[in-house]
Structure formats: structure tokens, C-alpha cells
Design a protein around this nucleic acid. Sequence first.
DNA 1: CTCCTGTGCTACAATAAACGTAGCACACCG
DNA 2: CGGTGTGCTACGTTTATTGTAGCACAGGAG
Lengths: 113, 113
Amino acid sequence: MPKQMAARKKRRVRGSSSGRPIMALLDLLGRRWTLRIVWELREQPLSSRALRAACDDASPTVLQARLTDLREADLVELVQESGYRLTELGRELFDQFMPLNRFAERWSKRPAN
Amino acid sequence: MPKQMAARKKRRVRGSSSGRPIMALLDLLGRRWTLRIVWELREQPLSSRALRAACDDASPTVLQARLTDLREADLVELVQESGYRLTELGRELFDQFMPLNRFAERWSKRPAN
DNA sequence: CTCCTGTGCTACAATAAACGTAGCACACCG
DNA sequence: CGGTGTGCTACGTTTATTGTAGCACAGGAG
């Protein structure tokens, strides 16, 4: 058993013990690349390398770590002959973020700063 | 000028040069504690120390950094005699996340894993 | 069979970010 | 004056992320 796996296994989602699921979710989504991955998988499944390319060639180390997190959270799944894709639950989550796109447009056009 | 400030000044939001505002926004929200801060400010303004308490006593170093980020993004503002609070833009952002609470409840009740 | 390509995934050293503790300067109020 | 609260920073340690390289495996072509 690789030691990296053992280390990850012991890691819990922060706030998961607080009884406030929103905290656990915010912590998961607050890890780097997590939101981005969900975003990039919105249209079609992507292979691990295609996903990496979509994410500005982020380090495969983090991507694999995040994919593991997301798979354990049942938001992403790995399908043979197809690659990584959002689960039904993951798609529901993404649907919450859809409006974020339009918000981002307005936000980027805010006057000066 | 403190060197920490100089370092922060040079920092850009990742993806902000890609012409895709959503990337910049996802990057900003993907930094640790950012989503949590927005969440904790949803009801009323909080002083810097009250906010820290609300965020499980996170290190003031990161919180200040995030507050600076959020203030530069016009999502949070510091008001005299009142503390940190969401701007109008920040509130719009939060409104996108409201449904996330209900989603988090369902998500936490998913069968095994 | 061998060679080539693509997959998911990992090792490992280097860098950057986050943490924890302590403390500053300032303001207010007794 | 002393006490308390504010926003905010220094700094040494720990943790997370990065970048480069590479593994084992599974097809397909020659």
C-alpha cells in the first residue's frame, strides 16, 4: 500500500464532524481545483489527461487527489471507456453553479477597483 | 511597506487573463476559507475577531489575506463601527449559494460510500 | 511477437500556501 | 492611568501544491 494512500485515507473533510453538512461541502469545494474540475466535466466526460489539459495543465498529483475526494463524495465517477464524469449528484451540484457563470460576467465588469 | 503586502500586491487571480471571468471567480472561491467567509457573513456583519471565531478559529494570517482578496473583488467591505459585511455584489453571490445548503443536506445523507 | 500510444495513477524533490502563536498600533471607555 | 476591543502583521513550523518524471496496464498496428 503506497504511503500516500494511507495518508489520504486518514484525512477527513474538515467540518464533517460539526453536524453541519454545509461546512463539509464548503471545505471540499474550497480545495484548489475542486470547483474547476466540476466545471470542466459539465458537458462531457473527460479522460484524466484531457481533464488535466482543460485545467491549464495542473499537476496530476493534485488532480488525482481531488478526483479521489470527489469520487469518495459521490460527485464524480470513473467510467470505463469514457473517463471521469459527474454523477447524478454531481450534476445537481453543478446545476447550483450554473448561474455563477452569468454572475461572473457581471462581476468581471464591475467598475474599477 | 511590509514585504507581505508587496507580495500580495503582485498576486493575480489565476485565470483572470484567460478572458473567462468564471475561471477567475472559481479560482478566488477555490482558495481556502473564501467560501466559508462569504457564508459566515450572510446574516450580519462580523468584526475581524468574530469572523475568526465563526471560522473555527482559523489563522488570522489567511483570514486577512482572504478578506483583502474579497475586498479587492468588491464582494466584502469593511464598514466603520460595524465590521466586515457583504457588499451588494457579495450578496448576489451568496444568493447563488443559498440552494447549496439544501443540497448539502441531501448530499450528507447519501447512502454509504 | 514487438513497438507505439493512451490510459489511470504514483514518486519525489522543490516551492508556495496555510497554520499557530505572538504581538503591534490605535481607539474608546472606565 | 489601566483595561478592552479593533484591524492587522511577523515569523517559524507544518501542510498543501507544483513540476517533472515515470510506472504498470491495455489496446492496436506492424
